[in-house]
Amino acid sequence: MPKAVKFSRYGGSEVLEVVEVDARPPGRREVQVAVVAAAINPGEIQIREGRMHEAFPAHFPEGQGSDFAGVVTAVGEGVDFPRVGDEVIGFSDGRDAQAEVVTIDASRVIPKPHAVGWNEAASLFVAGTTARACIVAVDVRSGDTVVVAGAAGGVGIIATQLAVLAGAAVVATASEENHAFLRSLGAIPVAYGKGLADRIRKIVPDGVDAFIDAHGDGNVQVAVDLGVAKDRINTIIDFAAKKKFRVKTDGMSTVEPREVLTELARLVANGELKVPVYASYPLERVRAAYERLGARHGLGKIVLEVRPADSV
C-alpha cells in the first residue's frame, strides 16, 4: 500500500504521521501519478495548527500538500492527455500531494518539460501562482520601481524575477546572506528590519510605484510610508493590514493555475526563471521539513523527495 502524510488532530509538526493509504484507481477523466517530489508551503502549517479552521477546516484524518511532480501510472476513461509514462507537474486542491500516489482530475496536471528538474517542478504551483497573482494585483509595468518584501522566500523569489522580466526595477528585501543571489537575478537587495523605509528612499529617491509584501512584519506600513498608492500594494500574509489600510490581498485563487503553471514551467525550462531549493527531505522526515520551514530562513523552497523518477 502507498504511504501519505496525514494528521488526526490540530497541532505542531508532532501530529504529522506517514501512514499507509488505499491507492484509489483513476475514475473517468482522472489520472494516477506516482509522486517523485512534493513541495511544502507555509500556509499548510497554519491549516495544520488550526489557525485557519474557519476558512479551511480539516477533516480528520487530513492530508497535506498541493504541489507535486511525478510519472503517470494509470489513466481513466475519457483521458486523452496525459498518457501512462508521461512526466507531469500536478496541482491539487485536495490536500493530498504529500504522498507516494495521487489520483487527480487530468486537467490538474501539465507536461513537465524535460529541462525542468523534479524538485523545481514540484515547487511551482503554490509559490508560482501566488507570485503571478501579486504581479497582476499591483499591475507591474516596464519602467516601474517595485519593492518585493521577503524576496528570498518561495513566493518572493519568483515575484522578484517576474517583475524583472516585466521590465521593472526591483528592490528586494531579504537577509544579507541572500543579497548576492538576489543581485544575480537583477534585483537591488536591501536588508529588512528597522529603518527599511529610509534605506529604500536612499536606493530609489524618485519613489516606489508598487509594493509586494510576502513577509508581513509591518511591511504594509512601510509601503504606505513610502507613498505607494494603496491599489498598488498587495500582501499575501498581513490580513490585518487589509482592514487597516484597505490594500489588496490577492493570492493564487485570482489567477488561472494551469495557464500560469505552464508559463512558469516554460520560463524555468528556458533558463529565464530560477526556483532554488535550499533543503530536501524524504517523505518519512516530513516533520523535520516543516520544522525547517517554520524557522523562516532559507533561499527558495523545501521539497519532499518521495522516490527516484527511474523507480517508477
Rank of each mutant, 00 (worst) to 15 (best):
A99G: 04
N270K: 14
P2N: 11
D198R: 12
G94K: 14
D144G: 05
A151Y: 02
R287Y: 14
L283N: 05
Y290G: 03
Q161W: 08
C134R: 02
A37F: 11
E77L: 02
P42N: 06
S66H: 12
E20D: 15
E176S: 14
P189N: 10
G11T: 01
N270Y: 14
L162I: 01
F91G: 10
R201N: 06
L16S: 08
V18H: 10
F7I: 00
R183N: 07
G167S: 10
H297M: 10
V5G: 04
L226Q: 07
I203A: 13
D310V: 08
S13L: 03
A214I: 00
H59L: 11
V247G: 05
F91N: 09
V208N: 06
D96P: 01
Q98F: 09
T235Y: 01
I233W: 01
E49W: 04
G117M: 04
E20G: 11
A23Y: 11
A37T: 03
R201M: 04
K274R: 12
K243N: 15
E87L: 03
V204K: 14
A229R: 08
P111M: 07
G78E: 15
A172L: 06
A55H: 14
G117Q: 09
A309S: 11
V31W: 07
A295M: 14
A55Q: 13
A99V: 01
L185F: 10
A99H: 05
F91C: 11
R296H: 11
F125G: 04
A99W: 03
L273C: 06
G65T: 13
D206P: 03
K248H: 13
G298Y: 11
F81S: 12
R83L: 14
G271K: 05
D93G: 15
A74P: 07
V147Q: 01
V224Y: 10
V155A: 07
Y278M: 09
G227M: 10
K230C: 15
A289G: 12
R246H: 15
I110C: 08
D96H: 10
A115I: 08
T262K: 13
G90S: 10
A210E: 13
T103D: 15
G207D: 12
N234R: 01
D225R: 01
V275E: 13
P257W: 08
A229I: 06
A106R: 03
T130A: 05
A58K: 04
A23Q: 14
P282K: 08
A69E: 02
G193S: 06
I104C: 04
E100K: 05
T249V: 08
V116A: 07
S92D: 04
W118G: 03
A180G: 12
P189C: 05
A23R: 07
H297E: 15
L273Y: 04
A74K: 07
V21N: 12
K230M: 15
F60M: 09
I104K: 02
A240W: 11
A223M: 02
R48Q: 12
K244G: 14
E14N: 04
V208T: 07
K194M: 14
A131R: 03
R285A: 10
L267F: 13
L283K: 02
V109Q: 06
G195C: 09
L16H: 09
V190G: 01
G186D: 07
A279K: 02
A58W: 09
Q64M: 15
G207W: 10
C134H: 05
